[in-house]
């Protein structure tokens, strides 16, 4: 289980996350909703150790991880799909996957599994990442993170700018991972997509988790969306 306790974090002197608490259990999808600038991406970066915690703590399966150097966090099995994909653009598809595999010393079998989930990448192994279409790039970003065989998966707006068929492909992958017992934290702007897959929905506002509800509670009270997301 991934757990954030009373976390303060930010950039230099700018504090973004304030006394934020949150947890994600294995086999569940926790969706984060919030306005632009609410601190969702910062929250994910602080889990990865890329933004340092100023106070509070982060725990993974009972181990405290917020004081580890950033590069050790993925080795514990946290896969990260950053906002905007952040592929290694000048590398090939195969090399991008290789980086993912190396993070936890995974071998050819894991690579095969991942490529079976995204067969389109198999045909493009030697193509440079920056020449892929937007949808293919998102597949690669997802595949790269899955190369870690993560126990926790962080997805930061994975469907940004994608067409519906691509969105359902990514969604199918996420749902399959939930079945395998992966704890999933998903930042998503599209409310209808969230309602389809989420087990719990947490609203982020001003760097805090202000409210956590189930999708059915959200259905029942649409004014929540109006209040926290502005739709």
């Amino acid at each position: 289980m991934l757990e954030l306790r009373n976390l303060d974090a930010g950039y230099g002197k700018v504090q973004v996350l304030r006394d934020l608490s949150l947890h994600a259990r294995p086999g569940e999808i926790l969706c984060l909703l919030g306005r632009n600038g609410a601190g969702k991406s910062t929250l994910m970066k602080s889990i990865m150790g890329l933004v340092r915690a100023q106070a509070g703590s982060i725990w993974l399966d009972g181990q405290r991880i917020d004081q580890l150097p950033a590069w050790q966090v993925p080795r514990l099995g946290i896969g990260y799909i950053p906002q905007g994909r952040r592929l290694f653009n000048e590398m090939t598809v195969a090399e991008n996957l290789q980086i993912g595999l190396m993070a936890r010393r995974k071998g050819a079998d894991v690579r095969e599994n991942v490529l079976n989930m995204f067969p389109r990448l198999r045909d493009r192994l030697n193509q440079r990442a920056d020449t892929l279409s937007g949808g293919e790039q998102q597949m690669l970003a997802t595949a790269r993170a899955l190369c870690l065989e993560p126990g926790v998966l962080l997805l930061d707006e994975p469907t940004e700018g994608l067409q519906p068929s691509m969105i359902s492909l990514i969604r199918a992958a996420v749902v399959a991972l939930r079945k395998q017992g992966v704890a999933i934290v998903l930042v998503e702007q599209r409310v209808e997509a969230v309602l389809q897959v989420a087990d719990r929905v947490t609203f982020v506002e001003n760097g805090q988790c202000v409210l956590t509800v189930t999708p059915s509670e959200l259905h029942a009270d649409e004014s929540l969306l109006h209040r926290y997301v502005g739709v």
Partner: peptide, 12 residues
């Protein structure tokens, strides 16, 4: 190419 993302994939 991307120092931050490299760290997020275990590069020290």
């Amino acid at each position: 190419q991307d120092r931050e993302t490299a760290q997020a994939f275990g590069v020290p």
